[in-house]
Design a binder for these strands. Sequence first.
DNA 1: AAGGGACGCGCG
DNA 2: AAAGCGCGCGTCCCTT
Length: 568
Amino acid sequence: MTTAPRWRVVGRGEGGAITVVDLDRNGDRLAVHAFDDDAFRRAVAADAEATRWVWHDTRWWYRMLLDAGIRISRCHDLRLSHAILRTSAWADAPALRAARGWDAGGPLEEAGPQALFDLDGGDVPVLPESLDEVLAEFERQREAVTASPQRARLELLLAAESAGALVAEELHAAGVPWSREVHAGILDATLGPRPLAGGVPARIAELGAVVRAALGDDRASLDSQPKLLRALHRAGVPATSTNRWELAEYDHPVIAPLLEYKKLTRLASANGWAWLEEWAPAGRFRPVYVPGGVVTGRWASSGGGALQLPRQLRPAVRADPGWTLVVADVAQLEPRVLAAMAGDTALAAAARGTDLYAGMVGEGVVTSRQEAKIAMLGAMYGATTGDSGRLVPALRRAYPRAMGLVDEAAAVGEAGGVVTTWLGRSSPAPGSGWQRVQQEASGADASAADETRARRSARDRGRFTRNFVVQGSAAEWALAWLADLRTRLAALPVADAPAPASGPVFAARAHLAFFLHDEIIVHAPQEQAEAVAVAVREAADAATRLLFGGFPLDFPLDLQIRADAAKG
DNA sequence: AAGGGACGCGCG
DNA sequence: AAAGCGCGCGTCCCTT
């Protein structure tokens, strides 16, 4: 009788052949297989459900599999896991920290065959993919986790991070269903007809003329910040910058058309016709997601500005014929995560309905929903002045546990310490520059300027660590939500729907199409919309229980089923 | 000519 | 009406 492997570790063996080592739950070897590329794909396809595949970089291996139409259930991404364990305060892992090569983490090209042609790159870091190095790193990671006092949470974090890596590749492969017609229609209505190559859109040209007239300078340059600032000064607007918020404070006929001009030039340059051609040439927008790309554990993106899509263009996200979108975002994710982490039952009580901010008003902590929002954001970001800073003390009185948690995180950061999220991602230690500034200020010959500088950089770091614990833990909730939802969607029956342009893995199957910190979009066959909506809600509940057990707090969703992703 | 920094602004 | 966290990207401008 054969034992089913717990892990299947993938690497390059003799002569570069793909080699898979099957391990049992104790990490003992069950079998070793050498494959060519085709045989490897067949082996994965035959065992896609059962096994946790262990590999150096999901971007490399899973992209190859998805291209061949193969989806898998689980993996362990050594690159992402290494990054977490290397800095986690809960992992005492000297061997892992000493390992060379695993902290490289460059773009995908550097890990793939592209590197062969990147000769002038010279010392471009390449992740180890040889079987020996992959096995050794996996062993180091298992040791670090097993020895951790927070083993269960770290295991959860590594599993969630790795699932996120799978989701990121699937999102890229499927793409965001994008209506070029709707997008072009918005551009036309806002900017005017598409100009000839290199031309200025009509509405922008008109507004530019109005602005120059108001400045009394028909040759004023509006696109150069220093020149615009000088032109404003000549026209009697004593602005110190040209940002929107400051300009809005001045009462001058140039302000309104100038702000509109800036709005339109922004749309044209960031998401205009050129963007449409480059990023959505065939009805799909395919951003590259970068899991763990932000220090806090949030995802980043590269290419196309996926995480900055203006709300204005959301109507261009449009389901294929016979399909629909399930659009869901979490209401007040970060304050809810904070309440659960701190075990703050008063804040949890305010969150009991669907609107945490309304709950705060109901408890008499603040007088309006807007105040509640400003105060809560100020507490999580470390505001000290303005309306926001003024309201924070009221929150400290009403929610001492939640506020105590972020205040403590700030204090640790100001003192140069490290803070850690709910599941175990730690903030980076302060850099040598930061420490030097603090030391210089504490020396006997420190000037007043030295002390001011040191205090400011300490406060800056305090605000960073204050926010780190909340933003990072919220990212963990979102990862758990994504991972659980991904599994539920895969379990839905294959639908009788027209094949979408989403590639072989996603034809006739509901799939994630977009993710943005606390929001997801699922592209679903119309007949499955309700089932998908249920899965999205159940996944949120599952994530909450997984992270916070029985703590009495919901994470309610704002969920809509509709053909486009506009809010309505 | 290429690259880095500053600025501004889109998103959460 | 905003000053306080985390990002990516386009533009301009200056340096190399």
